[in-house]
């Protein structure tokens, strides 16, 4: 799977794994530089993903199975 297409959770998991490997000190220098570079790219990708968040539009699934955009009306406050 290409890293760009990985789920956020998988990216975080890979990051944790890589960091643990680096912290174990059992990786040789060349390998650790490679891993470090990859992990840094992952961190940046995750960070970018979080910063450039495009707010997802909520959907509503109607009785007939069709989907529509859905948003809470402010006026709903008065219903309480």
């Amino acid at each position: 799977m290409k890293k760009e297409n990985m789920k956020f959770e998988d990216k975080i998991k890979l990051l944790e794994k890589t960091i643990n490997e680096l912290e174990s000190g059992e990786v040789d220098l060349e390998e650790s530089i490679k891993k470090y570079t990859e992990a840094m790219k992952l961190v940046q990708a995750c960070d970018k993903q979080l910063k450039e968040i495009e707010e997802q539009v909520s959907k509503i699934v109607l009785e007939d199975g069709t989907e529509q955009d859905f948003s809470i009306e402010r006026e709903d406050n008065s219903l309480d």
Binding site: F8, Q49, L50, I53, E54, E55, Q56, S58, K59, I60, V61, L62, E67, F70
Partner: peptide, 9 residues
């Protein structure tokens, strides 16, 4: 906010 939400009323 990156999470999709789907309401099943």
């Amino acid at each position: 906010p990156i999470c999709e939400t789907i309401l099943f009323p």
